[in-house]
C-alpha cells in the first residue's frame, strides 16, 4: 500500500520530464516485448501450419518416387478416377446431410432445454453431452460393435420386434447412413449448447410483446427466435461443415471406406493412399482437394467473426 502511493506520486513527474524521444523508445520496447510474447505462437503456426500447407502443395506435384516434378498430374489423375469421384460425392453428401441433421436436432434439443428452464438443467445437459465428451474414436468403436454383422444388438432388437436384420455396414447406402448417424449422435450436443446459449440471450420482453400482439408459437419462432439466433446458427453451421467435411475417425474405424470404397471421405482416402500405400504425393493431392472448400467456408466464418468484432468495439 505504502510503496504503491509513492509510486503514484512519482510516476507523472517522471513522465513529464521525459522527452518524447524516450517515450517513443519506451513504446518500441513495449511492442518488442509484445512481439516476443507472441514469438512461440508465431513459430508454432509458421512451422507447423503455414509451412506444411505450402509443402503439401509442393509434395502433391511430385511423382511417386518423389524425384520428379510432375505439375498437376496427380490432381488430374485423381479427378479422372471413378473411385475418387465417389469420394468427392460422399464427402459432400456426408458433410451436408450430417450438418443439417445436427443443426436440426441441436435446435430441437436447445428448445426443449429452454422450455424446462433451469429445472435440473445441469443434470439434463450433462446426460445429453455424454456423446460429445467420450473420445470419438472410442465411441465409434462401440458403435461398430453395435453394428457388428453377427452380434449386432440392434439387429437382435429388430428381430425381437419381428423385423429382419439390417446389414448396417454391409451395403453402400446403409453404411453411408450409419456413418452419418454416428456423426449426428456425436455432434448434435455441440449444436445444442451453442443454440441454448443463443436462446438464453434473446430478451424475454420480445416474446412478451409478441404475445400481447397475439403472435402464435410459430410466428414467435420465425419472427423473433430465428432472426435473433441467425448469427450463431450461421457460424455454428459453417464451423461444423469444416470439421465434418474433414472428419476422419468415424469412417476410418466404422467402415474403413468400405463397402467398395463407397464411404471414403477425403481424409480417410488420403490416409489410405498416402500413409498405407505409401504414395505420399497422391495422398497430399487428395488432402489438398479439401482446401478450396474449407477456404471458402473459413472465409465466411471469418467475415462473420470480424463483423461482430467491429460491432463489439
Amino acid at each position: 500500500m505504502a510503496d504503491g502511493s509513492t509510486m503514484v506520486v512519482g510516476a507523472p513527474s517522471a513522465a513529464s520530464t521525459r522527452p518524447t524521444g524516450s517515450m517513443k523508445m519506451l513504446a518500441r520496447r513495449r511492442s518488442m516485448a509484445a512481439l516476443a510474447l507472441c514469438a512461440p505462437l508465431i513459430l508454432l503456426i509458421v512451422c507447423l501450419k503455414v509451412y506444411p500447407t505450402f509443402y503439401a502443395v509442393y509434395l502433391a506435384m511430385l511423382d511417386r518416387r518423389m524425384n520428379n516434378f510432375v505439375g498437376l498430374d496427380n490432381f488430374a489423375f485423381m479427378l479422372s478416377r471413378p473411385s475418387f469421384q465417389l469420394v468427392i460425392f460422399q464427402s459432400v453428401f456426408f458433410a451436408v446431410t450430417a450438418v443439417i441433421l445436427k443443426a436440426f436436432f441441436g435446435f430441437v434439443l436447445a428448445h426443449l432445454m429452454h422450455n424446462i428452464r433451469g429445472r435440473n438443467e445441469r443434470v439434463w445437459r450433462g446426460l445429453l453431452l455424454v456423446p460429445w465428451v467420450i473420445p470419438l474414436a472410442l465411441s465409434t468403436l462401440t458403435w461398430w460393435w453395435l453394428f457388428d454383422p453377427s452380434y449386432s444388438a440392434f439387429n437382435w432388437t429388430l428381430n425381437a420386434l419381428g423385423i429382419e436384420d439390417i446389414a448396417f455396414l454391409g451395403s453402400t447406402w446403409s453404411a453411408r447412413f450409419s456413418v452419418i448417424a454416428v456423426n449426428v449422435w456425436y455432434g448434435a450436443p455441440f449444436f445444442m449448447i451453442m443454440y441454448l446459449a443463443a436462446l438464453k440471450s434473446v430478451p424475454d420482453q420480445l416474446y412478451e410483446a409478441a404475445a400481447i400482439d397475439g403472435a402464435n408459437a410459430w410466428q414467435k419462432l420465425v419472427f423473433i427466435t430465428l432472426p435473433m439466433m441467425r448469427n450463431i446458427i450461421l457460424i455454428t453451421v459453417l464451423y461444423s461443415l469444416i470439421v465434418t467435411f474433414a472428419d476422419f475417425d468415424i469412417v476410418r474405424i466404422l467402415t474403413n471406406g468400405g463397402p467398395q470404397d463407397s464411404t471414403h471421405l477425403f481424409a480417410t482416402y488420403a490416409f489410405t493412399v498416402g500413409i498405407q500405400s505409401g504414395n505420399i504425393p497422391r495422398g497430399a493431392a487428395v488432402s489438398l482437394f479439401m482446401f478450396p472448400i474449407l477456404a471458402t467456408l473459413a472465409f465466411f466464418v471469418l467475415r462473420d467473426v470480424m463483423k461482430r468484432n467491429k460491432e463489439l468495439s
Binding site: I45, T53, L59, S287, L294, L297, M306
Partner: peptide, 22 residues
C-alpha cells in the same frame, strides 16, 4: 489474431501428410 483464428479452422486431416514428412 485473425491468423490465429484462421489456423483454428485448419483441420488435422488437411496437413497430416506433409507433417508425416516433416
Amino acid at each position: 489474431s485473425t491468423g490465429v483464428f484462421l489456423t483454428y479452422l485448419v483441420p488435422p486431416s488437411l496437413l497430416f501428410i506433409p507433417l508425416f514428412q516433416i
